[in-house]
């Protein structure tokens, strides 16, 4: 996957975008098809009582989820490349909708079918959901491999985009003329990290213990410090003039 991702990223953002546009229906179509039969098992009463654990639990869950995703870091990484915020607005809204609507639908189906307690207890609740789906005509067949294929496609897109973002950041940082070597080196780093002997328990622990703090620090803390520094330097510069 890293090899193909590196090859794709070396060709720049446009081929990546075109490939992601090809993967989009391949991601959405099976997801929708698999979610419809899952609704047959849905019990919307499982969403009750609302705020059973209080608002703090919701905020904590939202924080953990934010840290697992790449939404905010991606905004910071892509923003410098956007030439016109006005022209980017529609694309951004489509992108957000593309992620938000399926995610909301999937989470609703998962909660109403599995219930909040089981969803929280499972390491991969969505995988269990699709493992349990009975599709008419396929009774008795486990169709979760279809979901795994979809998951693989979206994982590839994520890896490729992150590799591109990291490579462009390194290029800007070091003032390089091309992203070729940063892409290759980051691909090597991804390969090493992928081969690193990390257990699932380590990942689970990291996802709850320090990753939320690290992501929050990188996504909110560092930009905030930079912004404050810029604000402090501006009056000094203006005074010097």
């Amino acid at each position: 996957m890293v090899l193909v991702s590196t090859y794709l990223v070396l060709h720049g953002l446009e081929p990546m975008a075109r490939m992601f546009l090809l993967l989009a229906p391949a991601f959405l179509a099976p997801l929708v098809v698999l979610m419809i039969p899952a609704f047959a098992e849905a019990d919307f009463g499982r969403l009750l009582p609302v705020l059973e654990e209080g608002m703090s639990a919701v905020l904590h869950g939202a924080w953990i989820t934010l840290a697992q995703g790449f939404g905010l870091p991606m905004v910071w990484m892509v923003l410098p490349h956007v030439q016109s915020l006005e022209r980017a607005r529609s694309a951004v809204l489509v992108g957000v909708g593309f992620v938000f609507v399926p995610a909301l639908a999937l989470m609703t189906v998962t909660l109403t079918v599995l219930g909040p307690a089981e969803t929280a207890a499972r390491i991969y609740p969505t995988l269990l959901l699709f493992e349990l789906v009975e599709v008419p005509g396929f009774t008795g067949f486990r169709i979760d491999p279809i979901f795994l294929v979809v998951w693989l496609a979206t994982s590839f897109s994520t890896v490729a985009l992150l590799q591109y973002a990291a490579a462009t950041a390194v290029r800007r940082l070091l003032g390089l003329g091309s992203i070729r070597w940063p892409v290759v080196l980051i691909g090597l780093a991804l390969t090493v990290l992928g081969a690193w002997p990390v257990g699932q328990l380590d990942l689970l622990h990291a996802g709850r213990a320090w990753l939320p703090w690290a992501v929050s620090g990188a996504a909110f803390g560092v930009p905030s410090v930079l912004m404050v520094m810029a604000m402090l330097r501006r009056p000094a510069r203006e005074g010097a003039r």
Binding site: A117, E118, L128
Partner: peptide
Amino acid sequence: RDIATIHRELKE
């Protein structure tokens, strides 16, 4: 009913 459903009801 399947095992996952029985398990979920026992938890609920």
